[in-house]
Design a protein around this nucleic acid. Structure first.
Lengths: 155, 155
DNA sequence: CTGTGGATGTTGAGATCTCAAGCAATCGGG
DNA sequence: CCCGATTGCTTGAGATCTCAACATCCACAG
């Protein structure tokens, strides 16, 4: 019953697998080497830095960084040890926790960002033509839409 | 000095991050749920199943599955415990190890494959137009080329 | 023949991720 | 007001990944 991938689809799928693995491994390595920061943690800092007051509810932060609650909890715990994030209980809902970026955290992010952006340019944008960049954006959006819609109950 | 990402580039990059994270997390979850196999291990079985005699040198296997030697070593050790892969020393080079897919391993792969292919179709190919699938292939190839070339010494 | 450098894999420690279980606070129907 | 269901987040255990150190073997120059 299964519709197997034909030869072209195979090639495409494997190229995609290879590209994403190579790109993210490379960026992770660079970020780790230059800033002792895994990419996931970098992203948490970015999202916090953009939020008003540099603070977000854990759940909101999880959504914006496509992270599971559990992963985020562990990650923030580690960032808190580094003094880059502080946790506060939400005044209106005592279940809630608010993660707030500290000045040290902001400084760490500011130090890491230029190198990381260079890496993203070098490994993603530069190898692509402008049209391909546009296409990549559209493709990614389509995939995200498909997967997020599939979370919704179908009725 | 850093050329920051403009607004469009930001959107594209974040969509790409989100899409890949959602797609691979989803496929990983499905594979784990249905076959108790992380995606990386599944890929090792696939590569072995395609090789002549269903066997490959560790280094060749590492190259084809975009995996580090260390990761592969741990993974094959785990697959060997399951009885899905066997390791033999290479007759012509005593440093070398040959990983060979067992019949049980092949059966496990055969059981996992249909569901996984369905997932790939559902989460990657179906949401895209045929043109986008072609574009995705070209983009991925370009990224792979750029990163693999950058490994080579520049002189 | 020998020793040095390179290549192949493995290992162990530490970090991160996942899954499931758990706790605490809130919500909502009765 | 009260209790069961739900939400928000954390925790612990187990699995995987990374990095660096290591042991082994090959290749080749001297």
């Amino acid at each position: 019953m299964t519709r197997w991938l034909d030869e072209d689809e195979q090639r495409t799928w494997r190229a995609f697998l290879g590209a994403t693995r190579l790109v993210f491994d490379q960026l992770d390595r660079e970020l780790q080497r230059d800033s002792s920061l895994p990419h996931g943690y970098y992203e948490i800092l970015v999202r916090l830095s953009e939020a008003p007051e540099r603070a977000l509810r854990m759940s909101a932060l999880a959504d914006r960084s496509q992270s599971s609650r559990s992963r985020l909890s562990h990650a923030v715990a580690r960032l808190e040890e580094n003094g880059w994030v502080r946790r506060e209980t939400c005044p209106t809902d005592k279940r809630g926790q608010i993660a707030r970026l500290t000045d040290e955290g902001f400084a760490a992010l500011a130090a890491a960002a230029p190198g990381h952006v260079d890496g993203v340019r070098a490994h993603v944008f530069d190898p692509l033509t402008p049209e391909q960049v546009v296409q990549l954006g559209e493709i990614s959006t389509a995939l995200v839409d498909a997967l997020q819609r599939s979370d919704d109950p179908p009725c």
